[in-house]
Design a protein around this nucleic acid. Structure first.
Lengths: 123, 123
DNA sequence: CCGATGGTTAGGCAATAGCTTTAGTATCAA
DNA sequence: TTGATACTAAAGCTATTGCCTAACCATCGG
């Protein structure tokens, strides 16, 4: 099952980053980071109809960023913290990769320097 | 100018997250995290035509994730580390928000407990 | 029961995304 | 100069996105 998890990770990240690529959806996530809220409260500040806001909410739920539960006639939405951390991990992995690379490059340049090779060009 | 920067930040994040929402583009970023590469090398592993890959590259450049320079007939691409950190900051800001909120919630629940109120129900 | 409230479904429409093929333009190597 | 290499530009096609309006359904408060 961990194998399946890895295979689907790409799709997960697609949905995740896609969900975050819209300002209305990010606004919803920002609001929910401060606590749960019903659909109408998420929709109110947005410059669009209620159904449009609902569709954004669907995208957030499909991405696993938001979970919601309906009690009576009001659906209360809450953020799903671990979803964002997957995106964070991907970004961090990239950063450590290029940082290591730059470290190695720095070492290499230092080596050249101490060998007295006079080509000091960079880039 | 810092004001203008803040106003455009939303658009920046749109482009940034949108760029990351595609597996072909993430593959390019992953490759470039390990060092610069020409266009053809970025395109080779992808299941699509070269012009298609070029279009993905354009998206990455427009998002500020990649910078490229053409010398002779080969365009060499490199990652732009600070672009990703902007996305990272947004995610981090959300996490600290909800962590603080959960901390406050924990404090509140502890208060209730020490007041001897017997409703121990959770979610 | 009745109206108002909160949400949902459905259908349609314009714009964008992602890809293709075709046809270029420079460069480099011989 | 000629052919291969590396990229670029343009046009077109399909699917998806993001939005709308117009219904509809299910509570809840009298």
């Amino acid at each position: 099952m961990i194998l399946r998890h890895m295979l689907n990770q790409s799709t997960d990240l697609n949905r995740l980053f896609h969900a975050l690529a819209d300002p209305a959806r990010r606004a919803m996530v920002e609001r929910l980071s401060r606590g749960p809220a019903p659909v109408s409260e998420l929709a109110r500040p947005l410059p669009m109809s209620l159904p449009a806001a609902m569709q954004h909410l669907d995208v957030l739920e499909a991405a696993g960023l938001v979970r919601s539960e309906k009690v009576g006639r009001v659906r209360t939405c809450a953020i799903e913290p671990q979803a964002l951390s997957q995106a964070e991990r991907w970004i961090n992995a990239r950063r450590t990769e290029w940082e290591h690379r730059l470290d190695r490059l720095g070492e290499y340049l230092k080596t050249l320097e101490s060998e007295g090779d006079g080509d000091g060009s960079d880039e």
